[in-house]
Amino acid sequence: MKFTIQRDLLISSLQNVMKAISPRTVIPILTGIKVEASHNGITLTGSNSDISIESFIPAEEEEKVNVEHIEEGSIVLHAKYFPEIIRKLPEDIVSIEVDSSLKTVIRSGKAEFNLNGQDAEEYPLLPKIQTDDTFEMPVNVLKNMIKQTVFAVSTMETRPILTGVNMRLANNRLHFVATDSHRLASREVEIQDAAVQFENVVVPGKSLHELNKILSDTDELIQISVTNNQILFRTKNINFLSRLLDGNYPETDRLIPTHSKTKIKMKTKELLHTIDRASLLAKDEKNNVVRLSTEGNMIEISSNSPEIGKVVENISAISMEGEELKISFSSKYVMDALRAIEYDEITIDFTGAMRPFIIRPVEDDSILQLILPVRTF
């Protein structure tokens, strides 16, 4: 195998596949990166037990040559050393050459590295997804959906199903839901011409988190294919394959209140910054508890720590309807929800001091954040 390549393209491709490599794998060859050269370009692969990532660098793209002097072949190179070497090479062009005994020579400018490779034939073949359950959506919409839900997955392995995001597709509506049983984040979008329906597809939160880092923020389409135990996200130059979580996701629709006793409309950033300040004195409490109470159109946000001190701040609501209210909640959960919303104004619907409350952007009811209060009053 032999090729010459632009170093920056190789670095960016390596960064993508490194997200799938774990030093703790039980299959030793998976601590390496598989490098395949064909006349179309270079494919890099990284894999662990949860995700596999293929990143493709085309030999030519839009009349620009990325890879030259290609002799086809493949090798597995150690993921600890190969990316570091490429990152620190002196010139913009890198040449890589592998001989029959798997010795790999990496050259750039006056630098020359010799690395021992492993036989790519021993690298596990990635499962080929055969399914008609495929649909497409814009990359930037998918990234938004992930950002607005994935933070609410559980980090506790006691209920593994809650460490994932539940995907449902029905009647051309794609729905993402995440919950850790103390809060819930939901986002829904319309999918054009989706000739497929599914429910109870649960993607590990860690997989979606890594996928979100890799994807560029574009309106190009991403193809999503689902089988009973895997999901494949495919763009022009990336294949991202993740296992799905086993088990049934809980029925979350019934958790969402259908009426409210108190409805507040507020500026998102003003509320976020006020809660952020109040939480400074709530850090020692387990849940960083902050209290909210209403009087007329004024909202009082406070927190009190006997050892440290207390903070009280009043802000005015844009509008308020219904009963007066006192409620306590985790400042972290509410701040996470407000950061995910990305709209200037929100409504908060309360159904009582010990009932879940809902935060939605004023302009978009496809986004919903639900939070359980904390008992203090």
Rank of each mutant, 00 (worst) to 15 (best):
M1W: 09
K2D: 13
I5M: 00
D8C: 02
L9Y: 01
L9S: 05
I11Y: 09
S13C: 10
S22F: 06
T25G: 06
I27M: 07
L30V: 04
N40G: 08
L44T: 09
S47H: 03
N48M: 08
L77P: 07
A79G: 15
F82E: 06
I85L: 12
L89F: 09
E91G: 04
E91V: 01
D92P: 02
D92F: 09
I93K: 03
R107A: 02
A111R: 02
G117M: 04
P127E: 04
D133L: 03
T134N: 08
M137T: 10
N140M: 00
N140V: 07
L142Q: 01
L142K: 00
K143G: 01
S154H: 00
T158I: 03
T158F: 13
T163G: 14
G164E: 01
R168Q: 06
L169C: 12
A170S: 13
R173E: 14
R173H: 01
L174H: 07
A178Y: 00
A178F: 08
L184F: 03
S186T: 09
V189A: 11
E199S: 08
V201C: 09
L208I: 14
H209K: 14
I214D: 09
D219Y: 09
E220S: 15
E220W: 08
I224F: 00
N228K: 14
Q230G: 11
I231T: 05
F233G: 12
N239F: 12
L245W: 06
Y249C: 05
T262W: 09
K265N: 06
K265H: 09
H273A: 15
D276N: 13
D276A: 11
K283N: 08
E285W: 10
N287T: 11
N288P: 01
V290A: 05
G296L: 04
M298E: 11
I299C: 07
E300G: 06
S302T: 15
S302P: 07
S305N: 12
V311D: 03
V312G: 02
A317Q: 04
I318W: 06
G322W: 10
E323N: 07
K326N: 14
S330Q: 02
A337M: 04
Y343H: 15
R360N: 13
I371M: 04
